[in-house]
Amino acid sequence: MSGEAVWRPDVPIGPLTTYRVGGAARWFLTVHRVEDLLDVARRLEGRAVLVVGKGSNLLVRDAGFDGLVVQLGDAFAGIDVLDGPRSDEDVAGSATVRAGGAAFLPVVARRTVAAGLTGFEWAVGVPGSIGGAVRMNAGGHGSEIAESLVGVRVVDLRTGEDGSVPASDLDLAYRSSNVRDDQVVVHADLRLRPGDVAAGEAELSEIVRWRREHQPGGQNAGSVFTNPEGDSAGRLIDAAGCRGLRIGTAEVSTKHANFIQADAGGSADDVFALMVAVARRVMDEHGVELHPETRMVGFPPFAEAIGAAP
């Protein structure tokens, strides 16, 4: 539903993340039109700005964010399947799916399977938005969004620039891209292959079953650290004796060592402190430097935190 885009002061950000901990934004804005985004560029006046999607990969310090947090409203959650190939390189019968930046990944996965398309089933278990998935090149089960992404429409909240960017210009790599905190993915175009609906639904069910069996629920943001080349962050953390390690209101999951659980009413600063403690122990035990997959706001650079005296 559209409505006036109002800057609201001192809005808690923790409830908008899957950790459900963390401080407030000095200003918060839900946008309903592209024009609202362009208005931000005119009014930002040097303020810090942060774009928040589903908050499934975000940790904001307890002291909060002294700037403007922008979140896309439901008007940006549309999913449209466009018939037919979009270029000479397309497989016969393939289609482009245009998904809004606020579209929920599991919904996109189910909608595309129902439309007889394949290639996006992996996303059914990722509780994020399309915009966030592009920004971090999200993936799972051997796939990632880069494999199907054709291009995006991006609005720069600093300059007001609004344009289309091909996927080849996004520097997509393992859990990263060149999309910045002050840029908004308005929509993304995905090219998917024709598939069998029944087979796709079976794959969705298997992915959901696997995740429930192997990954914890509750207040977490999924994998905390990216996997080092040729190894698993979870294995390294477990081997370093960190499974079940607790600092204050945060604990390394006993179900999967690359997950950190936050207690209800807990502290984002505790989560960060535990991340640092885990990374230090892995460095001491294995000589491997872990790199956060979690997007952290307001905290010191992670490499510096690891190097600081305990």
Rank of each mutant, 00 (worst) to 15 (best):
Ser2Asp: 15
Glu4Asn: 08
Val6Trp: 10
Arg8Leu: 14
Pro9Trp: 13
Pro12Glu: 04
Pro12His: 06
Pro15Trp: 02
Pro15Asn: 00
Tyr19Glu: 04
Arg20Ala: 09
Val21Cys: 08
Gly22His: 15
Gly23Trp: 15
Gly23Lys: 09
Arg33Asn: 06
Asp36Leu: 05
Leu38Thr: 03
Leu38His: 11
Val40Asp: 02
Leu44Lys: 02
Val52Trp: 06
Asn57Lys: 07
Leu58Tyr: 04
Ala63Phe: 03
Ala63Tyr: 08
Gly67Ile: 02
Gly67Cys: 01
Val70Trp: 13
Leu72Pro: 11
Gly73Lys: 07
Ala75Leu: 09
Phe76Ile: 00
Phe76Gly: 01
Leu82Trp: 15
Asp83Arg: 14
Arg86His: 14
Ser87Phe: 14
Gly93Val: 04
Thr96Cys: 14
Val97Lys: 00
Val97Asn: 02
Ala102Gln: 07
Ala109Arg: 03
Thr112Ile: 08
Leu117Lys: 00
Val124Asn: 06
Val124Ala: 05
Gly125Pro: 03
Pro127Val: 00
Pro127Asp: 09
Ser129Thr: 12
Ile130Asn: 04
Gly131Trp: 07
Ala133Lys: 06
Val134Gly: 01
Arg135Gln: 05
Gly140Met: 01
Gly140Phe: 02
Gly142Ile: 13
Ser143Lys: 13
Ile145Asp: 09
Glu147Tyr: 10
Gly151Ser: 11
Gly151Lys: 15
Val154Ile: 15
Asp156Tyr: 04
Thr159Trp: 07
Thr159Ser: 11
Glu161Val: 14
Glu161Tyr: 11
Asp162Ser: 12
Ser164Phe: 13
Val165Ser: 09
Ser168Lys: 09
Asp169His: 15
Asp169Glu: 15
Leu170Gln: 06
Asp171Met: 07
Leu172Trp: 06
Tyr174Trp: 15
Asn178Val: 03
Val179Gln: 05
Gln183Glu: 15
Val184Leu: 03
Gly195Val: 03
Asp196Trp: 05
Ala198Asn: 05
Ala198Lys: 10
Gly200Cys: 02
Gly200Lys: 10
Glu201Ile: 07
Glu203Ala: 14
Val208Pro: 00
Arg212Phe: 01
Gln215Ile: 01
Gln215Thr: 03
Gly218Thr: 00
Asn220Ala: 11
Thr226Phe: 06
Glu229Trp: 10
Gly230Glu: 03
Gly230Trp: 12
Gly230Phe: 07
Asp231Arg: 13
Gly248Ser: 05
Gly248Asp: 10
Ala250Gly: 07
Glu251Arg: 12
Lys255Cys: 02
Lys255Pro: 00
Lys255Leu: 06
Gly266Lys: 01
Ala268Cys: 13
Ala268Val: 04
Asp269Phe: 03
Met275Cys: 01
Met275His: 05
Met275Lys: 00
His291Lys: 15
Val297Asp: 09
Val297Met: 12
Val297Pro: 08
Gly298Glu: 14
Phe299Gly: 02
Pro300Leu: 10
Ala303Gln: 15
Gly307Val: 12
